[in-house]
């Protein structure tokens, strides 16, 4: 499902060169739920961004769902992100001026051939899966943090991606709401979605299938 070979990421400025990732090699099978752990600055989020094609590796090869990423052209990457990957962010990133269902519909706007009616059906179905059918017309500011993250999860799964990338999805939530989100993610995983989750919470990592550990940009486990 996901295969990383000799991935390197170097950030260069005129004076400084920072090695963010070095020689990362691992694979995630279809239906796996793995966690990525490491101290701050170890490259966890950078790795997630590289897997999610938000950032281009300086070297190495990525294979997503059997498709080798051999071009970093903007349109191509945008299409792959839209069709193959769903993102859940620590800070939700909901658009404040759109209500819940409109926020969830956003990924579908970039997919051709979907009617407005179909998009609405898919968004409502995704909201139903995260238990927010009764909040579709609410605006983000009218929701609790946990509810906002559930909206973000609905948005991540609405386009039915094969891979879900979660960057500290419970980082801004209390433990009860965090557990709710973890419960939804486990449920999605049981239904076949491959999940890569960045966390610094060992308790959450223990609930995933296995853990990749990073230190100073290097893979240590």
């Amino acid at each position: 499902m996901i295969k990383l070979e000799s991935i390197e990421k170097v950030y260069r400025t005129e004076q400084v060169e920072t090695l963010a990732l070095s020689n990362i090699n691992f694979a995630v099978d279809e239906g796996e739920f793995i966690s990525v752990m490491g101290p701050s600055g170890s490259g966890k989020s950078t790795l997630l961004n590289v897997i999610g094609l938000l950032d281009e590796p300086s070297a190495g090869e990525i294979v997503l769902n059997g498709q080798a990423i051999n071009s970093y052209a903007d349109r191509y990457l945008a299409r792959i992100r839209n069709e193959e990957v769903g993102f859940i962010f620590q800070s939700f990133h909901l658009i404040a001026d759109l209500n819940v269902v409109d926020n969830v519909e956003i990924p579908l706007l970039y997919r051709r051939g979907l009617s407005g009616k179909k998009r609405r059906q898919m968004a409502l179905k995704a909201l139903d899966r995260v238990g927010l059918s009764s909040r579709v017309k609410h605006f983000p500011s009218q929701l609790s943090g946990g509810q906002q993250q559930r909206v973000a999860v609905a948005r991540a799964i609405v386009a039915q991606p094969h891979i879900l990338l979660a960057d500290e999805p419970t980082g801004n939530l209390d433990s009860q709401m965090g557990d709710e989100i973890m419960g939804i993610m486990h449920q999605l995983n049981e239904e076949g979605t491959t999940i890569v989750m960045v966390t610094h919470d060992q308790r959450l990592a223990d609930r995933t299938g296995r853990t990749v550990r990073l230190f100073d940009g290097r893979q240590v486990q």
């Binding site: 999610g52 903007d74 945008a78 992100r81 069709e83 956003i106 970039y110 997919r111």
Partner: peptide, 16 residues
């Protein structure tokens, strides 16, 4: 900027 970044992450190309 944040919204633009989010839309790019969710599948929006620079042109879109």
């Amino acid at each position: 900027t944040e919204e633009i970044g989010l839309r790019r992450a969710l599948g929006g190309s620079a042109a879109s």
